[in-house]
Write a protein that binds this DNA or RNA. Structure first.
Lengths: 230, 230, 230, 230
DNA sequence: GATGAATGAGTATTCATTCAT
DNA sequence: GATGAATGAATACTCATTCAT
């Protein structure tokens, strides 16, 4: 497109800078949130990133948007874990491996746990988004393991993230004394989801993908209410 | 003691008022914390209770003291659940019942989950105190079920509260769509802790009662640090 | 007065109780204010006295009234010191002794210093009242010493309390390291007020007794303003 | 460096605004503290300065830091007074002049007196810091006057600030009626510290520079205790 | 675009004073 | 009369967010 041959590069150069800053901010936020949780202030993150707070707000409309972006990164990382696990020819082992590695990531990260676990941090809504990315992967891990006769038949793909979440809760509590305690409960879980003749039928249906939208709206609504009351 | 038969009641009536307010405050705090979590302000709780903030501070030196008092109540409630469960002649069913009922309580209460789950709220320290109360009860539930050959031998009493905690994490997430989803995971868990010949050995030792003191100290230390950094 | 022969004693008994309480409160207030200054809370004083706060308010309309009552006590004590000093046949020594003993009292009492020294505590107004009591005593101490040719002629009775005040300021500052440092400055002062041929004439007239009323009004006015602004 | 000659000013201009605000805050604080003492709230100072409270806290971590900054200013002003006084070829007059001018500053400023005089405001600690700055100046003033045979030999440099403090106490009391009354007592003092054959020996040693550290520690300790008790 | 200065509503906590018992 | 429970205004301080430079 002749006539504007040098504007593009200039814009690009700026974008490159901006992108660099964006990355710095994300990296700083990850570090700070990982260690101190989501209550850390944006000022601290900006300082950690070596930029001004204003720059953080130029890149992220909101503290929440920053958290969301960070969360999206994590989703990708965990999706990658799932994809790697799917390379395993043994479908049961693939599922186990994935659960294990995911829990391992969460066990070390206060912020990530808070992102996922508390509605007050928008946890529910985020979790839903994540599941859109995970759905096919979970589905693959689960259906393959079921096809191989290793996984109980009433296990659902949506159970995978919830189990991971539960393990991270155990990790949270015991982090100072037994940081690896979640492995104990993962093992119990695995024994509980193995296909068996005498498995207890699950009393409640799994969460459906279609319910995700509802969760998002309810969480948003709840928060609006909370703010209004205050 | 005739002659002063109505002095006692007079003194009591005074205290009755104070006690009434104390109860109102506790009730309000329970409601507010249950719905909105521990970040709710004491002003809101006072308003909810229909008293001034000062009154809250007259009864509870601290926000933390209020939370602690509330927590103590809950501990007693849950201990009562355990004691009722122990009446069941079937030791396995007793354990299941207890886990079920406890999870049920936690599934509805944001504040209680925060009390237990986050170090930033003093969760660790409180959890330890609770366990002092629960220890004999858990021990009874577990050892009986193991003696009956129903529970896997490597299950430990300290696993009971952690499993409950994990279930409450699931409840937290799904509260808006499937408030009862935790029952699904409890069922999986139950299948995982049933005594079987082919149980996978647990890879990490259970938390020891003796480690509780450590947790308490570390949590206290962590908090002191957090305050100092801030 | 027949017809009410037993009411009097009953009232009296109550008054005796009330007086006892009043004394207890004063004693407690003195202790607490002496050690921790006038910022101590009335609750603490009530606790110290073993009575309820309400009782304090029954006897003293105000925190200020309590402080005033306490102050009146002190004024009497110091007046007694002055009277004892006046027994000394040597007029110069009498004056010195009085200054010394007064400063000694003030050096030990945070609350008394605050009562006297800061307008924000109503110090000025109180000081005036005190001077009404002290005026004849100071006058006697001063005029006798002047008559004996020991004290410089331009020294005024109203200088006595101000010098004492100044010494207590020194005591305040050095209380932790040199609690007796005020003796050093009293000595300097004494050398400065001794009658000499080469004394420097005092550049400003002493405060007149008649100015006291003005001070009282101005202080009261200043305080009203301060409260209004807030 | 031509081509970017205006970047420097731009950076400076930013800072100029901040500095302007900082100065506004300091000026407002000085005014408010001068008139109403250190108990004035930061909200009021912010209002007075025409900025938000947050701005005050951006520049001064603490109320104490603001007070300290203000105090540092004053120390410099007073040091300047001392330096000017030292220009006087007559050593005795230099000392007198300094005492006079210093007292004059303090006589007008409630806040400054509180800064210096009360441990509860950190007075002791600040006074020590000030003395580090004043020490050589006081020493010069004193030793010269002693060398000239005008000042009594047992007078110590550390007596200078204490005398000033005492004079300010007199000023405090009489500010509404005789704001200049301190001059009267300074004159008495001067007559008391003049070298004479018949000076009364000072009964207590002067505070030593080495005792300053102790004071600082004790004051800090006392404050920690005070907070703990409360 | 970047910076960091400014804002102000919000939080926990204290304390003089009032009032029901 | 005595008690101590209740009140609520006041204070220092924080932090997400906006905006001038």
């Amino acid at each position: 497109m002749p006539g504007q041959p040098d504007k593009q590069p200039e814009v690009r150069r700026l974008r490159r800078d901006a992108e660099r800053n964006r990355q710095r901010i994300l990296a700083a936020a990850r570090e700070v949130f990982t260690e101190r949780g989501l209550d850390a202030s944006l000022d601290e993150i900006a300082r950690h990133a070596g930029v001004g707070v204003g720059t953080v707000y130029r890149r992220f409309a909101d503290k929440e948007e920053l958290v969301d972006a960070l969360f999206a990164e994590r989703v990708e990382e965990i999706a990658a874990i799932a994809e790697r696990a799917l390379d395993d020819p043994d479908p049961w082992r693939a599922l186990i491996t994935f659960l294990h590695e995911w829990a391992n990531v969460m066990a070390r990260d206060v912020g990530l746990r808070q992102m996922l676990m508390f509605a007050s941090y928008g946890g529910g809504a985020r979790f839903c988004l994540a599941r859109e990315r995970f759905a096919p992967l979970s589905h693959a891990l689960v259906s393959r393991a079921q096809a191989a006769g290793a996984l109980r038949a009433d296990f659902a793909p949506t159970d995978v993230p919830l189990i991971s979440l539960m393990l991270s809760a155990a990790a949270e509590y015991a982090q100072d004394v037994r940081p690896e305690i979640w492995q104990r409960y993962l093992t119990m879980f695995i024994d509980g989801i193995r296909a068996r003749d005498d498995s207890t039928p699950l009393p409640v249906n799994a969460v459906l993908p279609g319910e995700m939208q509802m969760i998002m709206e309810q969480v948003a609504h709840a928060r609006a209410n909370a703010n209004a009351k205050t």
